[in-house]
Nucleic acid binder design. Structure first.
Length: 498
DNA sequence: AAGAGCATGAAATCGGTG
DNA sequence: CACCGATTTCATGCTCTT
């Protein structure tokens, strides 16, 4: 019996850790299960189900959707509005289909549209795909290494990809030793990697939030939350324009992290600038620009570059104002830095609105401050039940407080995923009749680039909780299989098709 | 009241990898 | 060059003792 996690892990190991990081950031699982026997136009038969793998019990990446998230790229267009957004989306789908008809992969089509824009002519897109297969193109663009890596992987199929993976393997030493040895890794015979996720390029939010979204949600008829989030720093914070020096040409922030710059950074910048002319010499500019990029500083006063305030991060991440207020400031930064971006997740989850008119039963792992829950709420999707697993006391408090203010459903809070075992899961499944959505993003701190102490990869103390996601997912599946046999008898069980 | 001892939280400081 | 961070140091506030 194949074990999904091994497949996933193997595939992740094949593609290298920086990609694995993106890949694991968010794992969304959803299941479509009819509403018992209330004949509410449900979709309990497989025909209406979203792409779910037939034939075996293993997860199959081929049939999982992998969406991007918010790249830090700039969209030069102005506020496009909802209709335009949707038009772009359907334009995009149409073009992807055309390109696929021409024999290109969806990855390639996606990437070409990303690069050339959704309005680009088909022939331009075709050219772009050809060009993208030349490595140089990656370097000629204004992309980070990380983006380059991801894009190259995504644009190369088959043998080229295999070769790239092979090359990257050789370079990988750090994670290849003891840590990897603990798991049954590839013995050389099954070198063929799993299909790689396709990228979906960003929401053009003002701050990069590079995460991969693995899910089996339908991808048709998704819709964004309104109002659309801001797309540039100035759209988000127009008042900072006043102090923004012309030689700082950032339009988007880097990744919102959990740690903020100390006051001394602001201080040093101020000193350097005040003691030099206007514009400051190149060397000073370079220093300041570097510090600003590194710490995501914004210009809040004359010569004064300061870190974002917690409420500004809440805004950028799509949370209601003061969502995290009431706990320490350091804690707020940490929780927000680890959180989902609500608009992005909501876009993916938006398809559930029509599928579960009576609301959803959610199993939420690594809930954090409740990005997934806030997204569902903003979508107007009622949460009948949320069983939330979150280890952080402060985070649980934040979620509970928000829940009490906004929700009428049942919230059950559990502290540790490791303690959530089969019997308890079965109890919840029996009690609530099952779950409609399993959602969660397991910890990445042992994979994260800025972790200089315990970057132990997927086997790290925290990141290995990824395995618990699959343990629990399997447990839910099997518990629901059981209950379905009891309750519904002969009805085919969608879970078995996962 | 003053101060040692402790607990807690915030600020400052720390580097490496793909 | 960007990164969903960890550890150490510092500051503050509390309790308990004298």
């Amino acid at each position: 019996m194949g074990f999904p996690k091994e497949m996933v892990v193997r595939s992740i190991k094949e593609i290298g850790h920086s990609d694995a990081e993106a890949l694991l950031e968010l794992l969304l699982t959803y299941k479509a299960l009819g509403d018992d026997d209330d004949a509410v136009g449900n979709h309990s038969t497989s025909g209406c189900n979203p792409p779910i793998v037939e034939g075996n019990d293993d997860l199959d990446f081929e049939n999982w959707n992998d969406d991007d998230d918010t790249g830090g790229r700039v969209s030069s267009s102005d506020d496009s509005g909802y209709e335009e957004f949707l038009r772009e989306m359907s334009d995009k789908d149409e073009k992807i289909n055309s390109l696929r008809d021409m024999g290109f992969s969806e990855d390639e089509a996606n990437m070409a549209i990303t690069i050339c824009g959704v309005d680009a002519d088909l022939s331009v897109l075709v050219d772009s795909i050809s060009a993208s297969q030349v490595t140089e193109v990656c370097h000629s663009r204004n992309l980070s290494d990380h983006q380059v890596t991801a894009r190259c992987f995504d644009s190369f199929g088959g043998r080229k990809r295999a070769r790239l993976i092979e090359e990257s393997k050789k370079k990988r030493k750090r994670y290849g030793g003891g840590a990897q040895g603990k798991r049954p890794s590839s013995d050389g015979s099954d070198e063929e990697s799993m299909p790689l996720p396709k990228p979906m390029v960003g929401f053009n939010l003002p701050a990069a939030r590079k995460r991969g979204y693995i899910h089996n949600l339908p991808t048709e008829n998704r819709s964004p939350l309104l109002p659309l989030p801001p797309k540039t720093i100035f759209e988000a914070f127009p008042h900072y324009k006043k102090w923004w020096p012309s030689w700082d040409q950032r339009t988007h922030l880097n990744c919102l992290q959990t740690c903020m710059a100390p006051a001394t950074v602001t201080e040093r910048i101020q000193q350097k600038l005040s003691s030099s002319g206007n514009p400051p010499p190149q060397s000073v500019q370079k220093y300041v620009r570097h510090e600003c990029s590194k710490w995501n500083l914004v210009w809040v006063g004359k010569d004064k570059a300061a870190p974002l305030e917690p409420h500004e991060m809440e805004y950028l991440l799509g949370f209601p104002k003061d969502h995290t207020r009431g706990v320490g400031k350091t804690q707020r930064y940490k929780s927000l830095g680890n959180s989902f971006q609500v608009d992005t997740v909501a876009y993916h989850l938006s398809v559930l609105r029509g599928m579960f008119p009576n609301g959803v039963r959610v199993l939420s792992l690594f809930t954090g401050i409740g990005g997934g829950e806030v997204a569902l709420h903003k979508l107007g999707i009622h949460m009948r039940v949320v069983v939330s697993v979150e280890i952080g006391e402060a985070n649980r408090q934040i979620l509970r407080s928000w829940w009490d203010q906004t929700q009428t459903g049942t919230l059950i809070e559990i502290a540790d995923v490791k303690s959530l075992k089969d019997d308890e899961i079965a109890t919840y499944v029996r009690r609530f009749g099952g779950f409609d959505l399993v959602i969660g993003g397991s910890p990445c701190n042992n994979l994260a680039g800025s972790n200089r102490h315990h970057r132990d990869g997927l086997e790290g103390e925290h990141s290995s909780l990824f395995y618990d996601y699959f343990r629990i997912l399997n447990s839910v599946k099997s518990a629901m299989a059981n209950i379905n046999y009891c309750v519904a008898g002969k009805r085919s069980n969608p879970w078995r098709k996962f």
